[in-house]
Design a protein around this nucleic acid. Structure first.
Lengths: 152, 152
DNA sequence: GGGCACAGTTAGGGAGCCTAATAGTTAGGG
DNA sequence: CCCTAACTATTAGGCTCCCTAACTGTGCCC
């Protein structure tokens, strides 16, 4: 594929990305908990994770993860436990209430989005579904560096 | 399509949306100007717009648009002019420097994203391209004009 | 055991969004 | 006409989520 076509596709995909951001924002506006919070809770729902692991997987810096954890802890959704194998580390796990809230938030968000998806026809949905794995591949900063680095 | 499949698709698309958000954030980290700023500037690059029109098309509230305009004005990229037909309104237009900065920002962002797209194979790119119009359809805000971002 | 690396927190700051309250302008009905 | 209701934008204050820099405490290794 010639570079000029790539750039043209990039330009159009930027529009799609912008709309995706709006969609996420509209979902955040509906529910009690933000996308960031729900993502973090989903991340630790299977196994407790260290704060550093959370930060790395969310693509943010450690202090940002600490801040989010503290807020969720104050809301009673999350616990901070010592790691038996390393006294420096802090394990973050969902409380019982956190599990309930998370389950409900996931249902809510899925239903909200399903409502939007219901307005598409079958072909459009198939096209969207096929694109999801590609969208996942496009994630920059495949593991190490956070997505956001403030210039300056 | 049964509702249960819709919800399952919603759940998977949520993951795609999350990655899209990361991608946008990583593009913001690279350049000097944010996606929000570039979108606003693209919006007024053809014709000056009123602050209210900008807010509506960006899907944000009036005070948020005012704030963004003021910041861009202080950076010398944008001007606020009176509307001859309505003394209440304020028209926002790009300065010469704003036009130059915008053109360069669009090029840089497209090249940055094109680099990512270049790592896909042709089938994946075709799938992604086909999904863009569907992504745009998903963002219709009820009652109002759809938020259309003019990427260049 | 001294020094360095690592995990996390604290402190301070910025972008970008919000609601509520305010000032100024327009337009329509009495 | 004028008065009021509706509209446009701004100001004020507040929130989340992200950042860097500086700090505390722990682990490791020579």
């Amino acid at each position: 594929m010639p570079p000029s076509d790539l750039t043209a596709l990039a330009s159009r995909y930027r529009e799609g990305l912008r709309h995706a951001v709006y969609l996420v924002r509209s979902m955040d506006a509906e529910g009690e908990y933000s996308t960031a919070q729900v993502s973090m809770m989903n991340m630790i729902s299977a196994n407790p994770l260290r704060v550093g692991d959370i930060a790395r997987r969310l693509g943010i810096r450690l202090p940002s993860a600490t801040e989010m954890v503290i807020k969720l802890q104050r809301a009673g959704l999350v616990e901070r436990l010592p790691d038996a194998t390393d006294a420096r580390a802090v394990l973050v796990s969902l409380t019982g209430r956190g599990q309930a809230v998370l389950a409900e938030a996931n249902v809510r968000r899925n239903e909200h989005l399903a409502e939007q998806l219901g307005q598409l026809d079958d072909d459009e949905r198939a096209v969207l579904e096929a694109a999801i794995p590609v969208m996942l591949k496009l994630n920059l900063s495949p593991g190490d560096e956070p997505a956001i680095i403030h210039a300056k």
